[in-house]
C-alpha cells in the first residue's frame, strides 16, 4: 500500500513494484568465495532505515534503490539503478 516515488514514473502504488533484496546482500561477481557466502547469508536487519533494491516491474521495469524505515515504512530516499538514461 506504500506509495513509491519511481525515478522514471513518479509516485506509484506499491502493487506495481517488486521487492528484490537488501543492498547489503548483493554478492559482487568478483567476490572471493568466502566473502560471497558471508554476504549472501548474513543480514544487518536493522530496526530502522535500510537500503533496499526494488524493481518497478509492472511499470517502467526500471530498478531503484530506496532507503526505507522498516518499522514505519517511511521512504526517505530513492535513486535509480541502471545505465545512463536520456532525459
Amino acid at each position: 500500500m506504500m506509495l513509491i516515488d519511481c525515478p522514471h514514473c513518479g509516485p506509484r502504488a506499491q502493487e506495481e513494484f517488486t521487492y528484490e533484496r537488501t543492498r547489503d546482500s548483493v554478492v559482487p561477481l568478483d567476490a572471493a568465495p568466502a566473502a560471497a557466502m558471508a554476504t549472501l547469508y548474513a543480514r544487518a536487519n536493522p530496526r530502522g532505515e535500510e537500503d533496499e533494491i526494488w524493481r518497478h516491474t509492472l511499470g517502467c521495469r526500471g530498478w531503484l534503490e530506496l532507503r526505507r524505515h522498516r518499522m514505519t515504512h517511511a521512504i526517505v530516499a530513492v535513486r535509480p539503478l541502471g545505465p545512463a538514461v536520456l532525459p
Binding site: H8, G10, R61, G82, V85
Partner: peptide, 22 residues
C-alpha cells in the same frame, strides 16, 4: 526527438512512446 519519460511523440502513422528508462 525521442520523447522524455511518460510522453509519446508523433501520430498513428509514426509514433515513439517512452515507458522505460532506456
Amino acid at each position: 526527438a525521442l520523447p522524455p519519460a511518460g510522453r509519446s511523440a508523433g501520430d498513428d502513422q509514426r509514433r515513439a512512446m517512452r515507458f522505460e528508462p532506456t
